[in-house]
Design a protein around this nucleic acid. Structure first.
Length: 120
RNA sequence: GCGGAUGGCUGGAUGACCGCGGGCUCCGCAAGGGGCGCGAGGAAAGUCCGGACUCCACGAAGCAACGGUGCCGGGUAACGCCCGGCGGGGGUAACCCUAGGGAAAGCGCCACAGAAAACAGACCGCCGCGGUCCGCCGCGGCAAGGGUGAAACGGUGGGGCAAGAGCCCACCGCGGGACUGGCAACAGGACCGGCACGGCAAGCCCCACCGGGAGCAAUGCCUAAUAGGGGAUCCGCAUGGGCUGCUUCGGCCUCGAGAUCCCGGGUUGGCAGCUUGAGCCUGUCGGUAACGGCAGGCCUAGAGGAAUGGUCAUCCAGGGGGGCAACCCCCGGACAGAAUCCGGCUUACAGGCCAUCCGCGCAA
RNA sequence: GCGGGUAUGGUGAAAUGGUAUCACACGAGCCUUCCAAGCUCUUGGUGUCGGUUCGAUUCCGACUACCCGCU
């Protein structure tokens, strides 16, 4: 599988937020299946850490950890044609155990994938 | 050994695996892939100062306004920074702090208390003379004593006097000051004066010196489609009006319907600016030092919503528990992350290391 | 990246360098059969650390927090 593309456009984030989401202790996952087929076979992922997370150091640290988690999990469990958005949470994202975050992401992906498949 | 002062350094180490951003190189038409090497700080922070760089403005001189700096000498590209010295204050000491020019240029303020708060004067008083209803009153002299206050027109002692007073004398203080030392700030000070000249300028102010504005999202360039804006010259109109802090001389702008020539606005973008620089290291020389000269060597992040991350193992500090001990178990790594680049200041910071010095105690 | 402002009781606001004031709120009392209103009294404060001054909310510096512009 090719490397996931990084989401940058505000519109993509907004569309993902309107679709499914799942909360865990250390982050929130939002995801949607794209309808336009511009980049059909790709997994795309974005990261959000607002100023609520802390100063620039804390925000970057949170983003780096989210990237690390996503890079380990998404190639196995992510689905082509989907956009994922990981949102950092104050306090938790920077200190939560790494193992637990891996498990949480896997579980959150399951939960987010399920209702879509029931519809189809 | 205990306590303290100052200056400086450091602020996890090694390895493995999976990743990220640039660079060089190889393969490939391309997409992409392989290899090698590099990749946060002493504060990258606050934005409090000073510059480099770029664009804009700008004619010169004087004046005025506004802001800043403020002992002296040196360092520096420059500074409100640094070094050395001086004066003042604190500490037994090492040492530390210090916005520290001018109060006889002028204005202003000094609450409460106190008789009196800045220029002299007199509330309680002291002394003399006169009067007296013996309570005191009037006239004159005096400023030592009292109490207030942050601050009271010199302090102590003696002489002197009706009582007193720099009225006189000695010492100290104060003012001036030849001269001496020092580049200077300043220090010492023969001698003279005879007490006059309170404090506040981080109150207005005076003096000296410095200062154009904006900021790399500056600024320059490239491509495409398209809308029709502007400039120069000539001609016409006008010889006025306006702007430039003020003045003098000067400069600039302002109108059209025409002709010719030329340029080209905005917007997701891309490239440059962008890291070779008041650079770093070593040695040597000058200097008390800050720092500078010379020689040799080195290239050390460069992104563009933004990389430097994750996991594991061993070790090194640190904390807790068990054990006589060897040792074992658990926890666990300060402040914080480049964004045009430098020089400072300030603020944050677990701990560790080094050097010099001071006081006390003990021993010799 | 560049610049400006504010901070005073629980809240909102005043204060020429000289005892920090006012309104509402809170608490207590009076009044009322009770509540509200009204009246009286009380508690509580200059963001932090330094400096200048005899004396600082005020003047100066550094820091902290919040707010607002420009690009």
């Amino acid at each position: 599988m090719p490397r996931p593309q990084i989401l940058r456009k505000r519109a993509d984030f907004l569309r993902a937020a309107r679709a499914g989401r799942a909360h865990t202790d250390a982050f929130t996952l939002q995801a949607r299946q794209r309808n336009d087929d511009s980049a059909a076979g790709l997994v795309r992922v974005g990261y959000t850490c607002s100023k609520k997370v802390g100063n620039a150091v804390a925000r970057n640290r949170a983003k780096r950890r989210l990237r690390a988690v996503a890079a380990e999990v998404l190639p196995r469990l992510g689905r082509p044609g989907w956009d994922y958005v990981l949102i950092g949470r104050p306090g938790a994202t920077a200190v939560h155990p790494y193992e637990a975050m891996l498990r949480d992401l896997a579980r959150a992906l399951e939960k987010v994938h399920r209702p879509r498949e029931q519809k189809r």
